[in-house]
Design a protein around this nucleic acid. Structure first.
Lengths: 210, 210
DNA sequence: CTTGCCATCGCATAATCATGTTATAGGTGC
DNA sequence: GCACCTATAACATGATTATGCGATGGCAAG
């Protein structure tokens, strides 16, 4: 089945250029091309596209804001960023917002269709320099840092638990009631997908969460 | 109070020499000097000495065997080995058997009395080269290897526990009843000086017991 | 053949934990 | 202000654990 898509790009020349590429390609169906994503939620509801192509620097609403908005209502639709920005801030803002791929504009002519194929197969196409940035960041921290999204308090409780402390001891140590300790540990179990102290401690130590 | 002691040494010249040193020293009382330790158990019962001086190479029974025999009936009486052997095997056999100190014969004239003082104060006098051997071995393995003397089964159970398994799961995994799992874990707690799963797991992982 | 250690199993009780449900107060973001 | 998240707290129930006591069979050392 032909994937359907919508393009958001404010520069008329580039928008027309991409539009031309897409309509000439008979395995892809372009549902629309807009100069800003202000109406993106309505577009999605109206056209039900398989994929979004998104510039970052657009008047009215940035592509990153647009991604954030889309992700509130739809966590799955692939969004491929098409942009000139290759700096850390833009790349990570986009990825954190929920972008599925990140193609620099200088690579569009050569890689756009393979990127679309890749993204439709569940991949995450990135320009080489972007991929490298992402890997480096992973190796450092950010994502790797707190893979289970534990809150600071939860991390604190888990650390104490991993030292061998009982609920009671943790409560005394952190000056909170034993029931509160329970609450935190309950949430920790949910986030770590475990069901006992030993599982949690084992996972925490081996994955260096503490 | 004057410490009392018994000497075992087969070489008559050396035995007389040591005997002379001891009787001339007025803060020590020599209860007897024998050429072999065959009657050592009776000697201990009869004389009730505070300390034993023990050669290794003696006819009839080696000093190491003698130490083993003594330790069966008395785990506390200090035994100082006096020997020419400074090889790994003899040293460790003697220590494993339960020797309290290890003095090479070439150091006897210079160190015997200070060694006796030290051993009576609960120390472990050793000739310098022996001390070094012992430290090196410690750093390698032997004692460091299984510092808590866990049996193979206990280690197995602890490993499973450290992976996050419950008693029930461990029982199934190792095809033993949950009560047996309890028994093993109880002993593990005693040996590790802990009182909960998390403490045990924490200790096990951090000290690389599993 | 006796003693001691290891592995096995059972039972009983009290303590602790796992889990669900509910609720309040402070902070953030829109 | 209204959602949403975080930290706090309480209560209840069933499950699991901690601990003590006791017992059997195998096996190795003395």
């Amino acid at each position: 089945m032909m994937p359907t898509l919508i393009l958001y790009e404010d520069n008329p020349l580039l928008r027309d250029s991409i539009q031309s590429m897409l309509v000439l390609h008979d395995s892809i169906k372009l549902l629309g091309a807009f100069e800003n994503p202000l109406e993106i939620i309505n577009h999605i509801k109206e056209f039900n596209p398989d994929l979004l192509l998104m510039d970052i620097d657009m008047p009215g609403m940035s592509g990153i804001e647009a991604v954030t908005k889309v992700r509130i209502i739809n966590k799955n639709i692939p969004i491929l960023m098409l942009t000139v920005f290759d700096d850390n801030q833009h790349v990570f803002d986009a990825i954190c917002a929920g972008a599925s791929g990140y193609l620099l504009k200088k690579h569009i002519s050569a890689k756009l269709f393979s990127a679309i194929d890749e993204i439709m197969e569940g991949g995450a196409p990135m320009s080489p320099s972007i991929a490298r940035m992402v890997l480096q960041a992973m190796q450092q921290k950010k994502i790797n840092d707190n893979p289970y999204q534990l809150t600071p308090k939860e991390k604190e409780v888990l650390t104490s638990l991993s030292k061998g402390n009982s609920y009671k001891m943790i409560g005394v140590e952190q000056a909170i009631s034993i029931d509160t300790v329970r609450s935190h540990i309950k949430k920790i179990y949910e986030k770590l997908h475990v069901h006992s102290q030993t599982e949690a401690v084992s996972k925490a130590i081996h994955e260096k969460l503490v």
